[in-house]
Design a protein around this nucleic acid. Sequence first.
DNA 1: TTTAGTCTGATTGTCGACAATCCTGCCTTT
DNA 2: AAAGGCAGGATTGTCGACAATCAGACTAAA
Lengths: 224, 224
Amino acid sequence: MSLPLLKPVVTAADRVLQELLQDIVNGVIAPGSKISEPELAKRFDLSRAPLREALARLERCHLLERTPNAGSRVVKLSTENLLSLYQLREELEGLACRLAATQMNDAEIREMQELLDQHLSSQRVREGESYYQEAGDLDFHYRIILGSKNPYLINILTDELYHLMRMYRVQLGMNGPRVSRAFDEHKAIINAIANRDGELADLLMRRHIAASRRNIETKLRTQI
Amino acid sequence: MSLPLLKPVVTAADRVLQELLQDIVNGVIAPGSKISEPELAKRFDLSRAPLREALARLERCHLLERTPNAGSRVVKLSTENLLSLYQLREELEGLACRLAATQMNDAEIREMQELLDQHLSSQRVREGESYYQEAGDLDFHYRIILGSKNPYLINILTDELYHLMRMYRVQLGMNGPRVSRAFDEHKAIINAIANRDGELADLLMRRHIAASRRNIETKLRTQI
DNA sequence: TTTAGTCTGATTGTCGACAATCCTGCCTTT
DNA sequence: AAAGGCAGGATTGTCGACAATCAGACTAAA
């Protein structure tokens, strides 16, 4: 269940980035709250230089908003932005599917099919255990994105939009059902890719994401 | 002919960012060459802190590649990457058109139509003067992107991919013809948006960008 | 009472120096 | 002669302090 989404951690800025990322995505640092550089520097016991480096990268992920001479704030979640995010995702992941249908080799496709079967069985065993389901879904999307072999597309989806989407899912409590549905949809998408039918894979992925969007939208309507 | 693509310049990091951006896009700093932080700091007469801030932003634009403890290099131009870039652009600007067709208000659309007429007449006067043509094209695309009203889409196209595309255009000498063609295509796209026909605007924009890609591809084949 | 201005405190931006890491060339060893 | 290890030098990452800027409270005038 390896999600190599995390960049290599070698520098101090990398470490504090990981911690901040987790805290923001999980809502430990509340949306809309102000970021105090001196305070965080003290908390992580390092100077402001690597901290600022980390903040810059968080801004790149749309998790922070920085204004010159005024500091950083954690982004606020809104229905409008969620909609904008999903509009983009439908388009980009659809494109990823179309490209993956021609760019992935047979071994990669077979590996994904096996992976999906694994997820299915493990999911049946641990009914309702949402972590694995979540990780499985992420892994599925992640592999298709990589399969597109388009470096800019990969960068946008896995580096710049991914964590913001996670933030929405986590903070709106998206552990819920829609499990078996999602598995079937994943299976259909992989089959289309295995048949080298990029058009169909594109269409199915758009529907899959649209369904996910509607799911999260209803959740959002009842919560906020 | 205002292209408000440049963020407000208030800090020292902003200034050096602008200079570096220009030098990299124009090839003054050669593609593939290594960036020396001490050297640049001396050249711009400031410390390494704001310089590193600028480098981080250039990395975000895909103009630099940084590896931990090894420094930064200017990206190299390649046919594969150019293709990947245009694949993304077709998809994203197509989406921008579809959204703009419903999101732009009548005043914004009328303004764009007038702007296009201005460009056409000024272009007829200054035949072959490529700067205005270039600026006109950029302005056209820019306004449609903004018209989508999707903040993430806007950020990706105007902040993260825009300068890299400029780099390809400049360094491959894309001043050339394809002027009148482009104007007609622009006109058709705006008309589709004015008719609130997002599907058509999407299609036309994809074709427009595909034509531009083929144009730049032949240029690239003869040059490299 | 409202508004404009000022002053203070805190925060961000920048600086120069130190520590840690990596690359290069040379030397040793097989 | 080739491969591996070992300094030496240079570069990047990090630190603590200073300067510039901003937010908010307070005062004073209309």
